[in-house]
Amino acid sequence: MATVAELKAVLKDTLEKRGALGQIKARIRAEVFNALDDQSVPRPALSHENLLINELIREYLDYNKYKYTASVLTSEAGQPEVPLDREFLAKELNIVEDTSGKSVPLLYGVLSHFLRGGKAESTQNTLPSVSLLNYPEQNLGKLPAERN
């Protein structure tokens, strides 16, 4: 017969392997933040630049399934609940995308552009069609230890 300590260890190990333990911890952190957040303290006005930066980050978080982190960002920053349209965001940032870049967040393309030294493929701010980044789409659903 297994002891309570052994059952706890097996349960913890199982939850970690499934990725559920990390999600539970993230959910608890988000709930604690929401409980402690003092809504009576006014937030500073959200500048246009911060709005755009937060949207780039939110798109990245959503793509990587960091929903609790995205929820905390939206709440804490005073970001609109409805995300900005991707085409609007690209237009505001003067980014021209090719079709292959539309499957990943804009932030990946921006990072790839600067990893290449910021050299444009043309006179426009075109994000590269072939990136230096290893996009994580093949990593979705894998545990962190299994990811590239």
Rank of each mutant, 00 (worst) to 15 (best):
F88K: 09
L89C: 10
L89W: 09
L89Q: 02
L89V: 15
A90P: 08
A90S: 12
A90L: 10
K91Y: 07
K91P: 12
K91S: 15
K91H: 11
E92M: 14
L93G: 05
L93M: 12
L93C: 07
L93H: 05
L93R: 03
L93I: 03
N94H: 08
N94T: 04
N94V: 08
N94C: 14
N94Y: 12
I95D: 04
I95H: 11
I95Y: 06
I95Q: 09
I95L: 15
V96Q: 14
V96E: 08
V96K: 13
E97F: 01
E97N: 04
E97Y: 03
D98V: 05
D98G: 15
T99G: 00
T99N: 10
T99K: 13
T99L: 15
T99A: 14
S100Y: 13
S100Q: 12
G101R: 13
G101K: 03
K102D: 01
S103I: 04
S103L: 01
S103M: 06
V104Y: 07
V104E: 10
P105I: 02
P105Q: 03
P105H: 05
P105L: 01
L106V: 07
L106E: 08
L106I: 05
L106F: 10
L106W: 08
L106Y: 09
L107K: 01
L107C: 02
Y108G: 03
Y108L: 11
Y108D: 09
Y108P: 05
Y108E: 01
G109F: 07
V110Q: 05
V110W: 10
V110E: 01
V110Y: 11
L111D: 01
L111G: 01
L111E: 06
L111T: 06
S112L: 02
S112K: 06
H113K: 06
H113N: 01
H113S: 05
F114R: 06
L115G: 11
L115F: 07
L115V: 04
R116I: 00
R116M: 11
G117W: 06
G117I: 10
G117H: 02
G118F: 08
G118Y: 11
K119M: 13
A120Q: 13
E121L: 15
S122M: 03
T123A: 14
T123P: 00
Q124K: 15
N125G: 08
N125Q: 09
N125E: 07
N125R: 15
N125C: 14
N125H: 14
T126L: 12
T126R: 13
T126A: 14
T126N: 15
L127G: 00
L127R: 02
L127F: 12
L127A: 00
P128R: 08
P128Y: 11
S129K: 14
S129D: 03
